[in-house]
Structures are given as structure tokens and as C-alpha cells.
Amino acid sequence: MQFALRRSTNIRWQQLSIDKAARAQQKKQVPVCIWFTGLSGSGKSTIANLLEKRLYDSGKHTYLLDGDNVRHGLNRDLGFTEADRVENIRRIAEVAKLMVDAGLIVIASFISPFQAERQMARELFSKDEFIEIFIDTPLAECEKRDVKGLYAKARRGELKNFTGIDSAYERPEHPELTLDTCLLSAEECVEKIIQHFSALQLVNK
């Protein structure tokens, strides 16, 4: 049985007059997706928030997509099974792509534990539009911080499919930048990111 109103075979790409280059030129910036990955408690959200503030204060047009925040709305129907995690990242990657097309500097902060899904996200973007930043904080340190009490729940068996405990985290193979929060403060991490982007001429220091 065919469902004409539900099948993607009945749609086509609509050509628009204003493109990504025009939107970026209007904002006087290079649109890019800055993708933070790392364990829960690694410091991703803190660093991402500080980075956005730094970019915003310098006149850049930004948007921060945060894992917890997105699950309150767009992805509130998803749980934490492996399949749901994959779909969570797929949706976020597509949203980030739209925002980059709008000319924005998009900061995405997600555990994104699987290499295949991070690679899927990367492949949605043009070359140099996707920058993966690995917040490399050891599991023991993340558990020590445990600001949300999630690791304790997972250890007690009250929280299933928790990354690092009973669900795997696959370390990035070739991230553009790796930051160790045991050695660097959040502010120092942001400075490293700004220095990296300045070298690529993506932002002004």
C-alpha cells in the first residue's frame, strides 16, 4: 500500500534565492559547526557555554545546542538505548547543518558516544565546516565530579545504558582538537579553542 502524503518520493529540493554564502557574508563570519564530545561530567557544557559567550562578545552570531536542553523539546521522545542515542545525534546533526546554512557558528555539546554517528554528522558538512573537539576527561575524574549524581545512580543500577558504565564511549580517532580538563581550566580550554580557530582564520582572537 502506498501512502502518498507520507513518502519522501513525492518531494523535491526547492531552490532558494538566498544561499549559505550570502547569509555568511551578511554576518561577516565563517559558519562552522563546533562539535564537543566527551563523557558526562567532562566539562563539555561549561566550556561550550564559555566559548559561546566569548564569541558573542566579539560580535559573532552563534547558537549553542546542548544535550540536556535539546532533550526537553526536539528529542524529548527519545530515551537512552543505543538506537535512541543514534537518532538523537542524527537529529542534532541535521539541525546543526541547517544553522550553519543560516550562516551561524553552531556549538554542539553532546556525549555522542559512537564514532559512526560522529562521522555521520561530519559528513553532512562541507570540508572545514565541522570541527570535532574531544573533551578528554578520564572516567574516574568524571565520576569524582558527578555534579548531577548520574554516575552514582548508574553504579547502583538505577540508571541503565549510561555512557562509561554499561554503555560504551568510543574515543574520537582524529579530532581537530583534544583538551584535557585535568590539566586545563575551562577558561584555558576556551583560549586553546580560540587560538586554534584563529590559526584557521575562522574567528578573530
Score class of each variant (00 low, 15 high):
residue 59 G to S: 06
residue 60 K to Q: 14
residue 60 K to S: 13
residue 61 H to I: 07
residue 61 H to V: 10
residue 62 T to P: 09
residue 63 Y to Q: 13
residue 63 Y to T: 10
residue 63 Y to E: 06
residue 63 Y to K: 03
residue 64 L to Q: 01
residue 64 L to N: 01
residue 65 L to C: 04
residue 66 D to G: 06
residue 67 G to E: 11
residue 67 G to Y: 05
residue 69 N to Q: 11
residue 70 V to A: 06
residue 70 V to R: 03
residue 71 R to W: 12
residue 72 H to Y: 15
residue 72 H to I: 00
residue 74 L to T: 04
residue 74 L to Q: 01
residue 75 N to A: 10
residue 76 R to K: 15
residue 76 R to C: 14
residue 79 G to Y: 04
residue 79 G to A: 09
residue 79 G to M: 11
residue 80 F to C: 04
residue 80 F to P: 10
residue 81 T to M: 07
residue 82 E to R: 15
residue 83 A to Q: 15
residue 85 R to V: 08
residue 85 R to F: 09
residue 85 R to N: 10
residue 85 R to H: 12
residue 86 V to M: 09
residue 86 V to Y: 11
residue 86 V to W: 06
residue 87 E to G: 02
residue 88 N to P: 11
residue 89 I to K: 04
residue 90 R to H: 13
residue 91 R to W: 11
residue 91 R to T: 07
residue 91 R to I: 08
residue 92 I to M: 13
residue 92 I to S: 03
residue 92 I to K: 02
residue 93 A to W: 02
residue 94 E to K: 14
residue 94 E to M: 14
residue 94 E to I: 12
residue 95 V to Y: 03
residue 96 A to H: 01
residue 97 K to Q: 13
residue 98 L to I: 14
residue 99 M to N: 12
residue 99 M to L: 15
residue 99 M to V: 01
residue 100 V to E: 12
residue 101 D to Y: 07
residue 101 D to R: 10
residue 101 D to K: 12
residue 102 A to E: 14
residue 102 A to S: 15
residue 103 G to Q: 08
residue 104 L to F: 13
residue 104 L to T: 02
residue 105 I to G: 01
residue 105 I to F: 05
residue 105 I to R: 04
residue 106 V to H: 01
residue 107 I to K: 00
residue 108 A to R: 01
residue 110 F to G: 08
residue 111 I to C: 09
residue 113 P to E: 10
residue 113 P to D: 11
residue 115 Q to F: 00
residue 116 A to P: 03
residue 116 A to T: 06
residue 117 E to R: 03
residue 117 E to K: 05
residue 118 R to S: 08
residue 119 Q to W: 00
residue 119 Q to V: 04
residue 120 M to L: 14
residue 121 A to F: 02
residue 121 A to E: 03
residue 121 A to I: 00
residue 124 L to W: 10
residue 125 F to M: 07
residue 125 F to I: 02
residue 128 D to I: 03
residue 130 F to K: 01
residue 130 F to N: 05
residue 130 F to L: 06
residue 130 F to P: 02
residue 131 I to S: 02
residue 131 I to K: 00
residue 131 I to P: 00
residue 132 E to M: 04
residue 133 I to E: 08
residue 136 D to Q: 13
residue 136 D to S: 12
residue 138 P to Y: 06
residue 140 A to K: 14
residue 140 A to H: 12
residue 140 A to Q: 15
residue 142 C to R: 04
residue 142 C to E: 07
residue 142 C to T: 11
residue 143 E to A: 05
residue 145 R to Q: 08
residue 146 D to G: 07
residue 147 V to F: 05
residue 147 V to P: 12
residue 147 V to C: 05
residue 148 K to M: 05
residue 148 K to T: 01
residue 149 G to M: 07
residue 149 G to E: 07
residue 151 Y to A: 07
residue 151 Y to Q: 06
residue 152 A to F: 03
residue 152 A to Q: 15
residue 154 A to C: 12
residue 154 A to I: 10
residue 154 A to K: 06
residue 157 G to F: 04
residue 158 E to F: 06
residue 162 F to P: 05
residue 162 F to T: 07
residue 163 T to M: 11
residue 163 T to C: 12
residue 164 G to R: 06
residue 166 D to R: 09
residue 167 S to H: 03
residue 168 A to L: 13
residue 169 Y to A: 05
residue 169 Y to G: 09
residue 170 E to R: 00
residue 171 R to I: 06
residue 172 P to S: 01
residue 172 P to I: 00
residue 173 E to C: 00
residue 173 E to I: 10
residue 176 E to S: 04
